[in-house]
Amino acid sequence: MTIDWWTLGLQAVNAFVLLWILSHFLFRPVADMIAKRQEAATKELDAAHAARTEAEAALTDAKAQVDAVVAKRAGMLEQAQSEAERDRQKALDAARREADKLRTDARAEAARRKAAAEAGMRTEASELALNIAGRLLDRLPASARAAGFIDGLAEAVARLPQSTRDGIGTEGPVPVRAAVELSGDELEALNARLAQVLGRGVALSVTVDPSLIAGLELDAPHAIVRNHFRADLDRVQEELFRDV
C-alpha cells in the first residue's frame, strides 16, 4: 500500500474549498437567520415584557385611582350623611321650636279667651246683680234709697284726715250726687250730719245720678267719699276679679 501524495494534497485543498463553500452558502446564512430570529424573538419578548410591565403599572394606577374614588365616595357619603343629619336636626329643632311657640301661643290664646270669657261672665253677673239690686230697690220707698245712706256718708267724711275735712266746702258748695232726688228733710238731715262731723256748716250742691242705684257721693277737693250701691258693687266686682 502506497500513499498518493498528490491525491492527499488535492483532497486537503478540496476540503478547504468545501469549507469555504459551505460556510458561504450554508452555515453562515442559516446561522444568521437563526440569530436574526432569536434577536427578533428577544425583541418581541422584551417588548412583551415592557408591555406587561406597563400594563401592570397601569393596573396599579387604575387600582389606586379606584381606591381613591372609593375613599372619596365614602368621604362624600359620610359628609352628605352628616350634613343631612345636621339639616334634619336643625329642621327638627325648628319644628320643635315652632310647635312650642304654637303651643305657647295656643295656651296664651286659650288663657286669654278663658279670661275674656270669665270677665264677660263676671260683667254679665255684675250687671245681672245690679239689675237685680235695682229692681229690688225699686220696690223700696225712694227715701230708703237716700236717707239710709246719710249717716254712712257722714261717718266716712269723719274718717277723712283733718286737713281734707278742713278743705271741704272752702271752695264753694260741695258737690253731692244722689241716686234719687233728696227731699227737704233728707237734705236737712244731710246738712246736719255733715256740720256735725265737720264742726261747721257747708253749702251743698246736690245732683241726681240714678247710676248710683242707691246712696250718696260727696266730692271733696282732695277726696271723693262714696256711700252708694254702685261703689259697693264696683268694690265687690274688683274683689271678684282680684280673686281670679
Binding site: T7, L8, A12
Partner: peptide, 11 residues
Amino acid sequence: MIETDAALALI
C-alpha cells in the same frame, strides 16, 4: 482511500 482520510485528519 487513506489519502482522503489523512487529508481530513491533517486538517
